[in-house]
C-alpha cells in the first residue's frame, strides 16, 4: 500500500517543463560500478527526473538526500528497472552497468535484478517461513541445488544480515511474524542471498524505531566491504553516518554531489546548504 501511495505522490509532484539545473560537484569516481548519464524519467508526459548524471563507485555507500518528492526514490528504482512495473513510466538517457546500458533491449531484467538487489521502505517479507524468505530466490536462480547447500546459504546469509542468532530456532516460522526491524533485516538478507553486486535501499529505516535503525546502519557499514550500496534517506544524520558520498536532489534535479563530509560541512550550492541546515525539507 505504502509503495503504491509513494508512486502516486511521485506522479503528482511534477513541475512545469523547464531547463535542468547544472549539477555542482564531481560526479565521477575512479573505476565506477554504475554510470548514469543524462537520465530523464517521465510519468506519461510529466518529467520526474531531469538530466541526472552520476557515477556509483565500487564498495561505497552513496546516499541520496533531498526534500520529499525530489525524485530520489524514482531515480533509485531506475537503477534496477523496478520502474518497469509502472506502465506510465519512461526512462531515457544511459545507465551503464558492466559497461552496458541496462535499458538496452538486449538486457534481461531478471539477471539484472539478481545483480542489483533492492530493499524497500516498508519491510515486505514474503508470507513464507524465514527460511524460505532467504532460500527462495537462490533456489529459483539455481544458486543452490541441494537442501544442504540451501541450509548453508541461509545460515551464512542470515549471519551476514546479523539476524541468525535471533531467528535460528524458528526458521520455519513465518517471516511476517518478526518485529519491524527484524523484518527489514530479513529483507536485506533476502537481497544479499542471491549475491548481488549492488544493493539499492529505499529509505530502509523510515518505518523503524531508533534501535532497529541503528542495527540496520551497522549492517550497512559491514556490507559495504562486499557490496556497492545506494541508499535513499530522508534523514541527513543517517546519510552522514553511513555514506561516503552524498547526492542532493531537488525537484527532479541532481543539485550537488560530493563526499559526505564536504556536503555536510561545506556545501557549495545554496539549496543544499538551506536543506542540510533545515530551512526546508
Amino acid at each position: 500500500m505504502q509503495e503504491v501511495l509513494k508512486k502516486k505522490s511521485a506522479e503528482k509532484r511534477i513541475l512545469a517543463p523547464r531547463e535542468s539545473r547544472k549539477t555542482i560537484g564531481n560526479i565521477n569516481v575512479q573505476n565506477p560500478r554504475m554510470v548514469c548519464r543524462n537520465v530523464d524519467v517521465y510519468y506519461d508526459d510529466k518529467q520526474a527526473i531531469r538530466n541526472v548524471s552520476i557515477d556509483i563507485g565500487r564498495n561505497e555507500v552513496l546516499s541520496m538526500i533531498g526534500p520529499s518528492g525530489c525524485g530520489k526514490s524514482t531515480f533509485l528504482r531506475c537503477l534496477n528497472r523496478m520502474n518497469d512495473t509502472i506502465d506510465s513510466c519512461r526512462v531515457t538517457g544511459e545507465i551503464l552497468f558492466d559497461g552496458k546500458d541496462i535499458y538496452d533491449s538486449s538486457i534481461d531484467v531478471v539477471p539484472l535484478r539478481a545483480q542489483i538487489g533492492m530493499v524497500f521502505q516498508k519491510p515486505n517479507p514474503f508470507p513464507k517461513s524465514i527460511y524460505e524468505n532467504v532460500g527462495w530466490a537462490p533456489k529459483i536462480h539455481g544458486l543452490v541445488e541441494s537442501k544442504a547447500e540451501t541450509d548453508e546459504l541461509v545460515e551464512s546469509t542470515l549471519q551476514k544480515a546479523g539476524l541468525w542468532n535471533e531467528v535460528k530456532d524458528r526458521l520455519d516460522q513465518p517471516g511476517t511474524g518478526l518485529s519491524g526491524g527484524q523484518q527489514q533485516r530479513l529483507c536485506i538478507a533476502r537481497a544479499i542471498a542471491v549475491s548481488p553486486e549492488v544493493i539499492l535501499m529505499d529509505e530502509p529505516c523510515s518505518a523503524l524505531d531508533p534501535i532497529a535503525t541503528a542495527k540496520i546502519e551497522d549492517l550497512i557499514d559491514e556490507l559495504r566491504e562486499q557490496y556497492t550500496i545506494v541508499i535513499v534517506t530522508h534523514s541527513m544524520q543517517q546519510a552522514s553516518r553511513v555514506s561516503q558520498r552524498t547526492a542532493f536532489f531537488h525537484l527532479g534535479d541532481l543539485i550537488e554531489v560530493g563526499t559526505t563530509e564536504n556536503i555536510f560541512t561545506k556545501p557549495s550550492h545554496q539549496l543544499t546548504e538551506d536543506y542540510i541546515t533545515g530551512r526546508y525539507g
Binding site: M1, V4, N80, T85, L112, G117, V119, K128, A137, I140
Partner: peptide
C-alpha cells in the same frame, strides 16, 4: 499488496515465479 510483487521482482524472480511462489500462497 504491490510490495510483495516488488519484493519478488527485486530479487530477480520472473513473473510466473512471482505468481506461483508469492502471489498464490
Amino acid at each position: 499488496p504491490q510490495s510483495l510483487r516488488d519484493g519478488a521482482y527485486s530479487v530477480g524472480a520472473t513473473r510466473s515465479e512471482t505468481i506461483k511462489h508469492v502471489l498464490i500462497p
